[in-house]
Amino acid sequence: MKAAVLKSFGSPLAIETVPDPVPGTGEVIVDVVATRVLSYANEVFSGARKYALDLPVIPGPGGIGRVRAIGPDATRLAVGDWVFCDPTVRARDDVISPDITLQAWSARDEGGLRLQKHFRHGSFAEQMMVPTENVKRLGTITSEQATQWCALGTLLVPYGGFLAARLQPGETVLVSGATGNFGSAAVSVALAMGAACVVAPGRNDRILADLVRRFGDRVKPVKLTGNENDDRESMKRAASGPIDCVFDIMPPSVGTTVVRAAIMAVRPYGRVVLMGGVGMAGGAGLDLPYPWIMRNCITIHGVWMYPPDAAGRLIALVRAGLLRLEEYEATAFDLDHANDAVAHAAANAGPFKLTVLRP
């Protein structure tokens, strides 16, 4: 099969013919029809993000495709099924605290790296091998629709955060990082889950106005000034009531001041979800006052990805019409132009934009 291979950090992807994957028990082979190219893929491939990734590797976390072959322990899947390949792979020998790897992308620790050595290759290829439990049926779609369904991979990240925070219909949410790719996805997911109001702070007036245009007056935009106290008060005023949940998805390049301003806007007994990258690129870590957390009974959830059943539930939200994949504008590349796709993704990293490979 044809695949794009990362042989060393800092080198372009090599388009090569490699052996087809062979399934064993607990594994499924999927013909990849479409897979998203993350906006920061160039930072991973250059080594700038210092992700734990065992090279050489066929990269690509997750994708949309059709089942080619199943193992003997699959009882519901059938050859030809349209599926989403969930990249969050968990070891099967510890259900309480499993080692985790993001297939062909990164590992959390040494255990995750060991897991990565088996489920190592990803979706930048004509076929990929996936754990059986990571193959989620989509129902009937067309090959053209597969491109749009790649948005699932982006939407699942904030969905996992809101599940951890037990977001309830009618609550008020603040999305810190709302004008980014994952942050704008968080706005749409929160609304689909029944949030009455989503406070959306940011510096880009055009993107803030676009969020209101897309989703209506349940979105409350806030123009950030950089003054921590003033920005916090502006967020509270925009909410017109207590903020039940703050979701942070700010990237590593952002300083701690703007993140803390948003987090500390949450109400007493409120919940905070941390899914961003503050501190990952070095520099100061997030400093939150111990007395404020304790006296206000604040719950802080650190969340990496989402639970195993999240993809099925998110697919159901899409099928019910509560979450619109049509919000996403997709640009597709074939596998021979994988390096062009990586460059395009970096240059077009805005809200509701998808760069997709179609092997």
Rank of each mutant, 00 (worst) to 15 (best):
D54C: 02
I207L: 13
L357S: 06
A41W: 00
A107S: 15
V33I: 14
G183D: 10
A48F: 02
F45I: 03
A346C: 09
N227M: 10
V79A: 14
R358Q: 15
V222D: 12
K353Y: 05
R218T: 05
V89L: 09
V212T: 15
S143N: 13
T140I: 12
G285A: 04
P158W: 06
L156V: 02
G276L: 01
R137H: 13
A238D: 09
A52S: 15
F9G: 04
A332R: 14
R358C: 15
I15T: 04
M305S: 14
V219S: 08
T17I: 00
R108W: 09
E16V: 10
V222N: 10
H337V: 08
T142P: 03
L155Q: 07
A14E: 15
R313A: 13
G241M: 05
T142A: 01
R90I: 01
V342C: 10
E16T: 10
A345C: 08
G202C: 05
P252W: 00
V32Q: 02
A239R: 00
P251E: 09
R358G: 02
P221E: 07
T142M: 03
T142N: 03
T142D: 04
A196V: 01
A41M: 06
P21S: 01
I249D: 04
D231Q: 04
L288V: 09
M294W: 11
L354C: 08
E233G: 03
P307L: 03
D93F: 13
P23V: 15
S97V: 08
E327H: 15
V130L: 09
P21Q: 01
T88A: 14
V222F: 07
E327P: 01
D231C: 04
D205F: 02
T17L: 02
V219N: 07
V278H: 12
F333I: 12
T355C: 07
S184G: 08
Y51M: 07
D94T: 10
S184N: 04
L354T: 12
E329L: 10
A311Q: 05
V18K: 08
T142E: 05
A320D: 15
W149T: 11
K50L: 05
A146G: 13
L138G: 06
G177H: 04
M235C: 11
S97K: 10
V95E: 14
Y51D: 02
E133S: 11
E171F: 12
S234I: 00
D287G: 01
P98D: 11
A34T: 00
A146V: 13
I58S: 07
E228R: 13
A338E: 07
G241W: 01
M250G: 00
R36N: 02
L354P: 08
A239M: 00
T355P: 10
G282P: 03
K236D: 06
V212G: 09
R260L: 03
I298G: 08
A265C: 13
A332Y: 06
D244L: 03
A78F: 05
R324F: 04
F182Q: 06
V187I: 06
I315G: 09
L317W: 12
D230F: 03
L163A: 00
H337W: 05
I207D: 09
R295M: 11
A338V: 08
Y328D: 05
V199F: 00
G62V: 07
T140K: 14
G276M: 01
T355D: 10
